[in-house]
Design a protein around this nucleic acid. Sequence first.
DNA 1: GCACATCGTTCCACGACTCGGCACGACCAA
DNA 2: TTGGTCGTGCCGAGTCGTGGAACGATGTGC
Lengths: 259, 259
Amino acid sequence: MTEKQGPTVQSVERAIAILKAFSVEEPELGVGELSRRLNLPKSTVFRLLSTLEAGGLVAQNPKTGQYRLGVDLIGLANNVIAYADVRRVARPHLRRLADALGETVSLSILDGRDAVNLEQFVPPRRLVMRVGWVGRRMPVHTVSVGKALIAFLPEEELSRLLDGSLEALTPHTITDPQVLRDELVRVRERGYATAFEELEEGLHAISAPLYNHEGEIVAAISVSGPAYRLTRERIEEIAPQVVQTAHQISKEMGYRDGP
Amino acid sequence: MTEKQGPTVQSVERAIAILKAFSVEEPELGVGELSRRLNLPKSTVFRLLSTLEAGGLVAQNPKTGQYRLGVDLIGLANNVIAYADVRRVARPHLRRLADALGETVSLSILDGRDAVNLEQFVPPRRLVMRVGWVGRRMPVHTVSVGKALIAFLPEEELSRLLDGSLEALTPHTITDPQVLRDELVRVRERGYATAFEELEEGLHAISAPLYNHEGEIVAAISVSGPAYRLTRERIEEIAPQVVQTAHQISKEMGYRDGP
DNA sequence: GCACATCGTTCCACGACTCGGCACGACCAA
DNA sequence: TTGGTCGTGCCGAGTCGTGGAACGATGTGC
């Protein structure tokens, strides 16, 4: 998200907060529940919901009276052209990688100080696991894609990103900027990044960056899964495949490496 | 979109109007352009954009100063669970049908008096044509999916839908409710609907409804293309394939037809 | 190089619009 | 039947959003 903070409109901020309260785990919420979650009076929530409903961004379930996100959001998301090319090019590669490895494969971009998941492929036999990660924001220092995305940034941008304290999400999260910098040196050397239980306990991941035709890093792909399955040894095993997939996607976007 | 109109909040309505001003054809818009489009003062537009930007729903292109839709919309769209099952089940079938026929294939649902496209598959050699239809709303009487969706509605719901005049979008649009009703009889008889230049000049389409496990119509698929290619004869040729694909999708959703 | 036009952004006085408390009828469970 | 909670409606208060004017930045044409 943007760092600069211009003037804002309170009721629009509230409306956005309502939209973001819904999730894959909790797709339907009532006026009362939203009121409690967002610490707003019910009549305020009701009026905002009514406006969002008129605009097609939420819909009321006539059977339960509760609200859910509306289909017009699908149309809006489809008009998001940012990263559309890399997403379209990457999709078949990510699907194949997910099927080959039997693990969750994602595509993420850097947005402010967060890595944001734009695509996610979960193999069929793992569908009950970790859904709803598309759109999820994760602090860059806590995930392998974040490290892959920032490792090659100019020093000035990197310093700005690492300004302030690094939040610990688990006991394993890197919170010392120097330790993170050392880690980024390794990412640059190896061409891929890893994260071992730094975002969530029991979750491991490996990522590789994607380059566009100008040699800029525009996104990163990652393979993630439970630590008991995606052991450190297993991550070493699949690293070449992840890096190669990232390379293939980059080449399809016009990236040319070497002299 | 909902017919009922509750109390609304003006600034949230305006913010939604800003979001909907962006399109695949015009992915970047400036403050001044939005001001003119929406007939709002620039300072009002700027403040609303600033709020949407803080919420991640728009982003400013630092190079041009113009705005575009933000990646958080992708996350919100991913949390839209309405029709998620039918979309997931239908996707591989629609992709195959698009590849087999070499025409655009879509999935649409009924929302208020509109048919709304939720999925769209365009074969590779046709990618330069008609993009950005996901999220598009079309009056039900002007498209084949609309006819497929309303043909089997109870009389009461159908009457309510056809209340008021039917807008003519082309000289071929059906505007006489009785003529439309006769057309719907044919849809029920054949099991599929057609539209010949009723939404746009030069555009033909054929659709078939999708049923859920309770035998309710939840969506419809369509094949569409230019009239010179998708002639009336060609539509007769592919009708069995469209109906069969719809049937396969319906069965995967638990639909059981016949004794 | 300068003038001009247009851009996004900022400021501020003002009142329109949003707020939130309260109450309502509907619904459900005990 | 009673009590609790739900979504919804109303209305007075005043906060917040509005919009006009102006600003600096940028690009263009002469």
